[in-house]
């Protein structure tokens, strides 16, 4: 890997903190600031926003001082994990909304299961059935959580 003059973790993280701080200060101006004696709803968040932005700058600065770098190097995020896991949870939400708990669990485990390359279609299907059966028994029957099971149940 090419050597950089800065630690990308600190620079990216610092920029994000800076952005969050600035956004908070701008967004917080909608709310009444009040006085130090009678603080309005905007006072505390705006104060934090300034601190957050300042810390963001400090973290960026830290990233340019080699001596202050964190240990190790930045690991690249796994796109497969991000897309797969987010997709599986999104499928759980959508299927849960429109179809019911059982389809939601099957969607979650099947989509989520494929993220790991070691899983075979057969093991994923068996796992999905197992989790669905156990999950319904535990949460719907034993703990009584309200969640319709199938599209045709209510």
């Amino acid at each position: 890997m090419r050597r950089l003059a800065f630690d990308p973790r600190d620079v990216i993280g610092g920029l994000l903190l800076l952005a969050l701080g600035v956004a908070t200060v701008i967004g917080g101006e909608e709310y009444a600031i009040g006085t130090a004696r009678r603080m309005g709803p905007g006072y505390f968040p705006v104060l934090l926003g300034y601190i957050c932005a300042a810390l963001g700058l400090a973290v960026i600065a830290k990233g340019f001082i080699r001596r202050l770098w964190d240990e190790g190097e930045m690991q690249l995020p796994s796109v497969r994990a991000i897309l797969g896991i987010t997709g599986s949870v999104a499928a759980f939400i959508l299927a849960g909304q429109h179809l019911g708990l059982v389809p939601a669990i099957l969607a979650l485990v099947v989509i989520g299961g494929f993220v790991d390359r070691g899983n075979t279609p057969r093991s994923i299907i068996l796992l999905a059935i197992g989790v669905a059966a156990g999950g319904v028994a535990l949460f719907s029957y034993a703990l009584g959580i309200v969640f319709r099971l199938f599209p045709w149940s209510y």
């Binding site: 979650l108 485990v109 070691g118 989790v131 959580i145």
Partner: peptide, 24 residues
């Protein structure tokens, strides 16, 4: 193995979070 474990963990998290306010 972890590859068997994590889908179940994921399910526990989803149903657990849902159950607090019955909110997806």
């Amino acid at each position: 193995p972890y590859r068997i474990m994590y889908p179940a963990i994921l399910f526990f998290i989803c149903i657990g979070v849902y159950s607090i306010n019955n909110s997806l």
